[in-house]
Design a protein around this nucleic acid. Structure first.
Length: 327
DNA sequence: AGCACA
């Protein structure tokens, strides 16, 4: 099954859609004079004047690192790819591209939905190790979203991306989430091992990576597989709980009420019963639906949703291990 | 990472 990146956009609230990109021409290959970068005297209220980078990419908390002098071991000196974490889960590949493109030696980038919750990571490839390190020094700890203060963590990747910039595809989206078309609910068992075992960091084995979906702009290259899985060490697979018409809801705030949850769930067709109980003082809930289709739809659209009572992030929803007893 | 009720 092929999915394009757009169909992956989720229905959750995305308040940062109109993220103010800086579309000014890139400063390369003619960088602006250094005198116009008053690093220490940066005024958020006047974001455009004399700045090398847009204001939201400036370091709010720390002054810019003096020089990206980083001591790396000989292995790392061959790495020209950066690993980016700390991204908000509604980040777009385009945003990653616009983040890195103005840095010298940038080649291309990839956005990867790891399949673990809504976690998103990215890889940015440079023409050589030096430019990668320079960009890392410039962008690590960048506050990516001033609203949430989501802060990027950028490090050298464990291995180089095999992505080539041939054909000019600016960025690539890799989606390891176990998403399924609406029409086939039989695929749920184990026809493939999507996201199950990505431990191989091989440089020369693309053979059995059908699970990962790569959507390119050029639409031409097929076998480009990100070896980025190597950078996510020892990921546990997501649930292998079979589909169930009852959902298990966790990560609720201590003050979450049955009424509050009921209100949210009632918007979904097929919703029948809600039962809550506390575990370690924290409430969990079981929501029963008339069939697996409706429970699945509710789960997919509510996963990660924040309630008013949420204090530990959004709800986490899985299929329950057993169906709710119907009375 | 946490899964009850019968």
């Amino acid at each position: 099954m092929l999915c394009d990146s757009k169909s992956m956009a989720h229905a959750t609230a995305q308040p940062y859609h109109d993220y103010p990109y800086d579309m000014r021409p890139l400063p390369y290959p003619a960088p602006p004079p250094a005198s116009h970068s008053p690093a220490g005297h940066f005024h958020p209220s006047n974001p455009t004047v004399g700045l090398h980078s847009p204001y939201y990419l400036q370091h709010y908390t720390h002054p810019p690192p003096p020089a990206p002098i980083v001591h790396v071991n000989p292995q790392q000196q061959k790495i020209n790819t950066l690993f980016v974490s700390g991204l908000p889960d509604d980040v777009k590949a385009r945003e990653i591209h616009n983040l890195f493109r103005r840095h010298h030696g940038f080649d291309s980038c990839q956005l990867e939905y790891t399949g673990r919750g809504n976690q998103v990571v990215a890889f940015a490839t440079f023409i050589n190790h030096h430019s990668a390190v320079a960009a890392m020094g410039a962008l690590d700890r960048t506050i990516f979203d001033p609203e949430t203060r989501a802060t990027l963590h950028i490090e050298l990747a464990r291995s180089n991306s095999k992505k080539r910039s041939r054909g000019g595809s600016a960025y690539v989206v890799i989606d390891k989430r176990a998403k399924v078309q609406e029409d086939d609910q039989n695929d749920w068992t184990d026809d493939g091992d999507v996201g199950s075992d990505e431990s191989s960091d091989t440089e020369n084995d693309n053979s059995r990576n059908k699970g990962a979906l790569a959507a390119t702009q050029s639409g031409e290259e097929e076998g480009k597989l990100v070896n980025g899985g190597a950078a996510l060490d020892s990921e546990k697979t997501t649930q292998n709980i079979p589909p169930c018409s009852t959902l298990f809801i966790a990560n609720l705030g201590p003050n979450c009420s049955e009424a509050e949850l009921n209100k949210v769930l009632s918007k979904f067709s097929g919703f029948q019963t809600l039962k809550m109980r506390a575990k370690w003082g924290m409430p969990v809930a079981f929501a029963d639906f008339e069939d697996v289709e409706s429970s699945t739809a509710a789960m997919e659209s509510l996963e990660g949703t924040l309630l008013d009572s949420s204090d530990r992030g959004g709800m986490h929803i899985e299929y329950a291990r057993s169906k709710m007893r119907r009375n």
